[in-house]
Amino acid sequence: MSPKSIALVDNPMDDMCPICKSTRYLNKGIKFLINPECYHRMCSTCVDRIFTAGPASCPVPLCGKTLRKRGFKPAFFADLGIEREVDIRKRVGQVFNRRQEEFETLLDYNDYLQDTEDLIFDLVNGMAKEKLQAEEKLKAYRAMNLQEIEDNKRAGLEEADYERRKETAEKEAARQRRLKLIREQEEGKMDVEKSRRDMLERLANTDEDPTAITRQAQKVILKKSSARRNLTDSSSDPNGGLPLDSSLSIRGLKKKVAPIAEEAYDPFGGINLTPTRYVLNDEYENEWLNGIKTDTRILAGGYSLPEYYARTMFEAFSGLGVFINDEVGPKAKPEVRIKKEVEIDDDVF
């Protein structure tokens, strides 16, 4: 609305159709349309009147361009010069749609942008000859790079699509979390309520020590809430929810454009330390170790028998399959064994 009302103030001619001279004063719902062929403005009534029967020439004197009804659209900008430039930019941009990643250096990319800008200038402001040349150039370029243009177009669409999907996935995950939280809180409230009712009933119906009953009830409530928490902890399977990728966007991270040839991230760094010469069991019977299996104090400290099994087995098998001749022969280097020093007693420290 605003551009029109401003235009009214600026120039009353803007509210009059140059063809039929009807004005907004007489026709409140007047709509102006343009055709990107010549950018001559006329009201929608005129367009209907002149072009419904088929293509006709522009009614503006000395224009004479053949226009079709299909080509007419409302102008977004009040200044039709701008409208035209924007249209041209859109058209050129669809053809010259290279991305920065395709260039080796920033300088190359800048040169490319400069060329594109020159072409646009010729199309917008150039004389007839320059315009014609620019059009030719555009056409030739399109013909030459048809495949790449298509690729870039698709990439652009995909990017936009990815952003949109990411946003919706994030929103959905947040919503799910909120819902879950609310549900849990309600359940918790109901639980506590129920325990309280039970306690009151017991207080009323039995003749046990009332303090004991209240204390016990308190405990039950605590236990229940912690149990529920454990339950939710285990149920919150990270794979269960929607994939929440890269919710963190602190730095302007570079987009990974080439998903090809990148190996999967190996958390182990390509090292496999699984014993190859023996199989490690989870459990070994040994009378000497029974003391540990039953001592809660040792167990509570986290002492891990599997770790001990792994080390003992490793030490038992160390050196097997190592042939000194193989190592000494070609290199003629003295084999130096690091003797296991007497263990330092850790206890003093």
Partner: peptide, 9 residues
């Protein structure tokens, strides 16, 4: 340990 079957390749 430096000369054992489990040493890194």
């Amino acid at each position: 340990m430096a000369v054992s079957p489990l040493v890194l390749p």
